[in-house]
Measured scan of single mutants.
Amino acid sequence: ETGKELVLALYDYQEKSPREVTMKKGDILTLLNSTNKDWWKVEVNDRQGFVPAAYVKKL
């Protein structure tokens, strides 16, 4: 879809709370919100949640 910003997972991340999502290094995720410098909201496999901003980079 146009207008979607994507990020690349630089590291594996295992969710530690229900508000977070698990990702694997190399995953491409849809970026939903990056206003917080530490935690970015992403969508992966129809799930939305937060990942550490340092673990992903914008494509």
Rank of each mutant, 00 (worst) to 15 (best):
E1V: 13
E1G: 14
E1L: 11
E1C: 14
E1Q: 13
T2W: 13
T2L: 14
T2F: 13
T2D: 13
T2R: 06
T2K: 10
G3W: 13
G3A: 14
K4H: 13
K4S: 11
K4T: 11
K4Q: 11
V7E: 01
V7W: 07
V7R: 02
V7K: 01
L8F: 09
L8P: 00
A9N: 01
A9I: 02
A9L: 02
L10N: 03
L10F: 04
L10R: 04
L10V: 07
Y11K: 13
D12C: 06
D12T: 05
D12Q: 03
D12M: 03
Y13M: 01
Y13E: 01
Y13V: 01
Q14F: 15
Q14P: 06
Q14N: 14
Q14L: 14
Q14I: 14
K16M: 12
K16S: 09
K16F: 05
K16V: 07
K16E: 08
S17L: 08
S17T: 12
S17D: 12
P18F: 08
P18D: 12
P18L: 09
R19M: 14
R19F: 13
V21R: 02
V21P: 01
V21G: 02
V21M: 13
V21E: 00
T22V: 03
T22M: 04
T22H: 04
M23P: 00
M23D: 01
M23F: 11
K24W: 10
K24C: 09
K24H: 11
K25Q: 10
K25Y: 05
K25N: 04
K25G: 06
G26M: 03
G26R: 02
D27H: 05
D27Y: 05
D27Q: 14
D27A: 08
D27T: 08
D27S: 07
D27K: 03
I28H: 05
I28G: 01
I28V: 10
I28C: 06
L29W: 03
L29V: 06
T30K: 13
T30E: 11
T30Q: 11
T30S: 09
T30W: 13
T30L: 13
L31W: 01
L31V: 07
L31A: 02
L32K: 05
L32G: 01
L32Q: 03
L32F: 04
N33W: 07
N33K: 06
N33C: 11
N33F: 06
S34H: 08
S34N: 08
S34C: 10
T35N: 14
T35M: 11
T35R: 09
N36W: 06
N36P: 05
N36G: 10
N36R: 09
K37D: 11
K37T: 11
K37M: 09
D38N: 12
D38W: 14
D38E: 13
W39T: 02
W39R: 03
W39F: 07
W39D: 01
W39E: 04
W40A: 04
W40D: 00
W40T: 03
K41N: 06
K41R: 11
K41V: 14
V42F: 01
V42D: 00
V42A: 02
V42E: 00
V42L: 03
E43W: 07
E43I: 09
E43P: 00
E43G: 08
V44W: 07
V44E: 04
V44Y: 15
V44P: 00
V44C: 10
V44N: 15
N45I: 11
N45E: 11
N45R: 13
D46M: 10
D46A: 11
D46L: 10
D46H: 14
R47C: 06
R47A: 06
Q48M: 11
Q48Y: 07
Q48C: 10
Q48W: 08
F50Y: 15
F50I: 07
F50L: 09
V51S: 00
V51L: 02
V51G: 01
P52K: 03
P52A: 02
A53C: 07
A54R: 14
A54V: 10
A54G: 09
Y55T: 07
Y55E: 02
V56E: 01
K57W: 10
K57V: 15
K58R: 12
K58Y: 09
K58D: 05
K58E: 07
K58M: 10
K58G: 05
K58C: 09
L59T: 06
